[in-house]
C-alpha cells in the first residue's frame, strides 16, 4: 500500500480484510502487516499486505520495504491534488527498484466526491497510460474488494 499520508491506505486494508471502517485510525508508523486469502476463479492466493507509512514531509518511505513486493496499490486521495503527485513520485521510485510490477491506481474517498478535485476525465487520462485506475471508498466499501481482486488477478496472470 503506497501513497501520501492520510489517503486511506490503512482504511482500505481494514475494509478489505476485516470489513470495517473507522474515522479514528491512527497514522501508521513503520509498517503494518495484514493477511488475507482470496479466490480468483478456481485459484486461491494468500495476500500479505504491507501497509507502509505515508509519504510526507514528516516521514519518508523506505524503499527497501518494497523489495520483494509482488504488486502494489498506489493510493490517491480524491480530495487532495498533491496526493497524486506523491503517488507518481512513489510509482517511479518503486519501478526503479522492482521494474515492471503489477499495480492498481486507486482514487480513494469516493464518498466525498462533491469535494473531489479530480474529474472522471482526469482518471481516464491516468487509465490512458494502460494503467488500471479505480475509485474506492473505504468508508462505504465501494470498489474496495474490486481493487484487491483486480491486483490478485494480475498477479496470477504473471505466474
Amino acid at each position: 500500500m503506497l501513497g501520501a499520508s492520510a489517503v486511506g491506505k490503512t482504511s482500505l486494508v481494514k475494509r478489505f480484510v476485516e470489513g470495517i471502517f473507522s474515522e479514528r485510525y491512527l497514522t501508521t508508523v513503520g509498517v503494518k502487516i495484514d493477511k488475507k486469502s482470496v479466490r480468483v476463479g478456481e485459484r486461491s492466493l494468500d495476500l500479505v499486505l504491507w501497509d507502509l507509512n505515508g509519504e510526507d514531509r514528516f516521514q519518508k518511505l523506505s524503499m527497501s520495504y518494497v523489495r520483494g513486493a509482488a504488486g502494489y496499490l498506489l493510493v490517491v486521495d480524491g480530495t487532495r491534488r498533491e496526493t497524486l503527485d506523491t503517488a507518481m513520485v512513489l510509482h517511479h521510485k518503486v519501478r526503479a527498484v522492482l521494474g515492471e510490477t503489477p499495480f492498481v491506481m486507486v482514487f480513494n474517498k469516493a464518498d466525498l466526491e462533491e469535494e473531489w478535485v479530480f474529474s472522471d476525465e482526469d482518471l481516464r487520462m491516468q487509465a490512458a497510460r494502460g494503467w488500471t485506475v479505480l475509485k474506492t471508498s473505504a468508508k462505504t466499501g465501494t470498489g474496495v474488494d474490486e481493487v484487491f481482486m483486480q491486483l490478485s488477478a494480475r498477479l496470477l496472470e504473471l505466474e
Binding site: 509498517v31 502487516i33 504491507w50 523489495r67
Partner: peptide, 29 residues
C-alpha cells in the same frame, strides 16, 4: 512475522560482521 523476512536480509550482514555490531529495525505492527 512476515516483516522479519525483509529484516533478515539486512541482519545477515550484521551476523557476518564484527562482534558487537547491531542493527535495529523500524517498528512494525
Amino acid at each position: 512475522f512476515s516483516y522479519l523476512a525483509y529484516f533478515m536480509e539486512e541482519a545477515r550482514a550484521v551476523w557476518a560482521g564484527e562482534d558487537g555490531e547491531m542493527l535495529r529495525s523500524d517498528p512494525w505492527t
